[in-house]
Design a protein around this nucleic acid. Structure first.
Lengths: 176, 176
DNA sequence: GCGTATCCCATTGACGCCCATATGGTCCCA
DNA sequence: TGGGACCATATGGGCGTCAATGGGATACGC
């Protein structure tokens, strides 16, 4: 199961290169600037929601000004990161056989299913239909840190998914 | 043959030359100037539809004034790009034996299945029968970014194709 | 001359930019 | 240790700008 989770992670964009290299100082820096924990904020009348301050400062440290958002491949959640996230996907496409139907589908998802968004001066983002439709979000958003990116969840869906993941881990632990 | 054409499509669409490096400024520029995300607009009584502003500014940045449109090889969608898209196809054809059946068929699709179109002053394009017939579009158009070009889809067909691609991604991830 | 496409202008509704307020937490000082 | 000032964050809302759309008027082709 652990392996499976690791794979899931990779699928949804958490790259394994995250830890692998760089000077000690750089690694310290990265540790400091991970997306971690979760928080739930309300959507206002105009459809905006504040990105948690902790996440915003990570974005600032990484010099991320435009957010690349896409509909996650596994969960009913929107994954959000910097343009480097998109570039990683594109490299992945370029790396595998560029003639495969896989690459075509991949492009349909990451280009056609991805958006660039910007935060306003107060660090809020618009919750568009693009986000609502895919996640089921209506009036509250749960922000979930995923190391090098974060996700937008419908609050109940998140606790459910988390509970399920916890349950499977427990079983795996008893088995092994 | 079909596979071969699909390959062609991919070559031009998700080109492997993707932009691995460059100054920060250059990368910002590139991020800004690729076709990304999707949006659905209505067709008015005269059969016109507005191209999303984001796509128009990409076209402007690339100095594209005439649009080359052709019926996509794999999806029921119209692919739209600058004249460079057509030129790339033509180079591809020229690269192989000009008398081969393959080259002949490619030309049939590339040239016979393609048209040039122009936007009006407000950035709208006419939805002709050429487009309607192939895509099933009737009163709404979904614009889908594909990095170096974009596509016109019948809205429902797009969500269906995207859902299928996502499903296959998920399965592939779990399998491996 | 009639249908069709292009040009021009008007409307409106959404989004970005700006400032104001509240609320909770922290730090300092008595 | 308790109270209070201070600060940061989350949230609310006004307003201007621009994009999407609608519709009239004119040019063009069959």
């Amino acid at each position: 199961m652990l392996i499976r989770l690791a794979k899931l992670c990779l699928i949804s964009g958490v790259s394994g290169v995250f830890w692998s290299s760089g000077s000690l100082r750089e690694r310290m820096f990265r540790v400091m600037s991970r997306f971690l924990s979760n928080a739930t904020n309300r959507i206002d009348a105009k459809g905006r929601v504040s990105v948690p301050s902790a996440f915003r400062s990570v974005l600032a440290q990484r010099n991320v000004q435009e957010l690349y958002c896409f509909q996650d491949f596994v969960f009913p959640a929107i994954s959000v990161g910097g343009p480097d996230l998109l570039e990683r996907f594109e490299r992945q496409i370029a790396a595998e056989d560029p003639f495969s139907p896989d690459a075509n589908e991949m492009s349909l998802l990451i280009h056609g299913g991805g958006v660039f968004m910007k935060l306003d001066a107060e660090g809020r983002l618009m919750v568009t239909d693009f986000i609502r439709g895919f996640t089921g979000i209506s009036d509250e958003v749960t922000f979930v840190g995923r190391a090098d990116h974060f996700q937008l969840w419908q609050p109940q869906a998140f606790v459910a998914a988390q509970a399920q993941a916890r349950g499977e881990r427990k079983l795996a632990g008893k088995r092994s």
